[in-house]
């Protein structure tokens, strides 16, 4: 699903965020991405969503060579990747329903189909019945669930989560992690960047560990 070969990323200011990273994550697998803040976790996720471009090396995601992907194709590629952000990135002037519907609206899905899929996604994250509320009236955990519903609403084959449990207490963050685990069991490939070792032990999934931009432990690649 994801293959990095000798990928480096150097920012214009000279900071080398990633150095010669190589790993493979197979389709329908799940892995944790760990490392201290500044180790390059966010940069790695940004390379997968083409928010940043690598300065060296090859990246293949969902059978697409990202280095060669033309600029105009980026939006269509991003629809194949669901992303969950630490700060949720919800639109606060729109209802829960409209927030979750956004990826479908963007890809031009019909009205009726949108309603059906939004309710299905909200049902999966346990927020059915709150679709008319505004995000600001929800708790932090619920807001994160809205973010998750939005990420999965158009059923992408790949989910990326950047510190999805950063601001949540232990019980809530366990629930969120279980949710990702469930999606993985449905066949979605999942990468979760986190600094909480507890989840890794609990779910027993392979780990990619970054340190100063280098991959120091690769438990995901096979062979």
């Amino acid at each position: 699903m994801i293959r990095f070969s000798q990928v480096s990323k150097r920012y214009p200011n000279g900071h080398e965020a990633l150095r010669r990273i190589s790993f493979t994550l197979e389709r329908q697998h799940m892995a944790f991405l760990v490392g201290h803040s500044g180790a390059g976790k966010s940069t790695l996720l940004k390379l997968i969503t083409l928010v940043e471009r690598s300065t060296h090396g090859q990246i293949v995601v969902n059978s697409r060579n990202l280095v060669k992907l033309p600029h105009r194709q980026i939006p269509y590629f991003r629809r194949e990747v669901g992303v969950i952000f630490q700060d949720h990135k919800l639109l606060h002037d729109r209802t829960v329903f409209d927030n979750v519907a956004l990826p479908l609206v963007v890809s031009g899905v019909g009205h009726r189909e949108t309603g059906r899929r939004v309710r299905a996604a909200l049902d999966k994250v346990g927020l059915l019945g709150k679709e008319r509320l505004y995000p600001i009236t929800l708790s932090g955990g619920e807001q994160q669930r809205v973010g998750i519903a939005r990420a999965v609403v158009n059923r992408p084959p790949l989910l990326l989560a950047d510190e999805p449990t950063g601001n949540l207490d232990a019980q809530l963050s366990d629930e969120i992690m279980d949710l990702f685990h469930q999606f993985n069991q449905y066949g979605v490939t999942v990468i979760i960047a986190t600094h909480e070792r507890r989840h890794i032990q609990r779910l027993n999934k392979p780990v990619l560990e970054l340190k100063d931009g280098r991959l120091v432990h690769d438990g995901a690649s096979i062979g």
Binding site: T49, P75, Y76, F77, R79, K89, L91, L102, P103, V106
Partner: peptide, 16 residues
Amino acid sequence: REEIEIIRLIGGTDRF
């Protein structure tokens, strides 16, 4: 600005 950023992240085209 924020809305535009989010729409881009979830795959909205510039045309949209």
